[in-house]
């Protein structure tokens, strides 16, 4: 385990963390502002990945694939908000779980009907297929570098949007005290619809960008949903800044756990035990992190509601 390997894994962790942030940002806003538990957020991520993969394959243009993925998913989300989610805002959390679980079931079958059961193999754009020599002896896949740059750019854009624009101010007002925002004359219905569509767009972008380095298949939404929920709980529900910090933390911890724990255990434990324990601890690490954070700060790192 040398410095190059460590650096490479840290970059991987950063990329994964940034993608988690794109998913978690929408989730935390929907949760924080509308008090709505949306399990179907992962399905929007899946939609983005599928559209991007197929459009890229058909048109040979990666950028077009990403753009269409975001556009299609935002349109789907707008319809979803209008037909179902809008009627859930004032309901109980458990009812929201029930309804959005129903949406997951429907979404999985729709994807199966359109694109089939077999996982898609999304290819990286040809221009970014090769590695980049970051340092002497550290070649890094240029596609993963793009992932990091795109993630950072979107995070910065979101920061500006939330902190420096009028709509961002309304969003923050809704997150910290929804009722008061309503009293002050904020048209919450419009803000809700905007936030839901924004979250869907970010999730779709994450899905489109992750497609070439993960398997595009039914159930990918359910798999990414849990880490995203862990992120928003660690960060503090409703806080975009919290989601950013927590996403990087979770991305780093998860990647580092998978990369460094098994070899470290092999060094100190008998091989048979280490082979069993290593992957288990690596899989668990992010949940341990969440339990630890909740034990110290029960409302997450950056509670949105004072």
């Amino acid at each position: 385990m040398d410095a190059i390997f460590v650096l490479e894994q840290l970059l991987n962790g950063l990329g994964y963390g940034l993608m988690l942030f794109l998913i978690a940002a929408g989730l935390t806003l929907v949760f924080g502002i509308m008090d709505t538990m949306n399990l179907a957020h992962g399905s929007l991520y899946m939609a983005g990945a599928y559209v991007a993969a197929r459009v890229h394959e058909a048109s040979a243009s990666f950028a077009l694939g990403v753009a269409l993925a975001v556009a299609v998913t935002v349109a789907v989300a707008a319809v979803l908000e209008l037909v179902v989610v809008r009627r859930l805002y004032r309901r109980d959390h458990l009812v929201q779980v029930l309804a959005t679980f129903g949406i997951i079931l429907i979404a999985d079958d729709v994807v199966k009907a359109i694109w089939g059961v077999a996982p898609l193999l999304a290819s990286t754009p040809a221009a970014l297929a090769g590695p980049v020599q970051l340092l002497d002896g550290l070649p890094y896949p240029s596609y993963r570098l793009l992932l990091i740059c795109a993630g950072l750019a979107v995070a910065f854009g979101l920061y500006l949007l939330v902190n420096n624009t009028r709509i961002g101010m309304l969003v923050r007002a809704g997150a910290s005290n929804r009722q008061m925002a309503e009293f002050m004359g904020v048209r919450v219905g419009a803000v809700f619809a905007f936030v839901f569509a924004l979250g869907a767009g970010l999730a779709a972008l994450a899905g489109a960008l992750m497609a070439p380095i993960s398997s595009v298949q039914i159930g990918m939404g359910e798999a990414i949903l849990i880490p995203a929920l862990v992120v928003i709980v660690i960060g503090g529900i409703g806080s975009v800044r919290g989601a950013f910090v927590a996403a990087l933390l979770v991305g780093m911890v998860d990647t580092a756990g998978r990369a460094f724990l098994p070899p470290a255990l092999r060094a100190v434990l008998p091989p048979a035990v280490a082979a069993d324990l290593g992957p288990a601890l690596a899989g668990i690490s992010m949940y341990v992190l969440m339990a630890a954070v909740l034990a110290l700060k029960p409302a997450g790192l950056f509670p949105a509601r004072g």
Binding site: A99, G102, L105
Partner: peptide
């Protein structure tokens, strides 16, 4: 799956 989703 989807009929069950609609049911929910």
């Amino acid at each position: 799956h989807w009929p069950l989703g609609v049911l929910l």
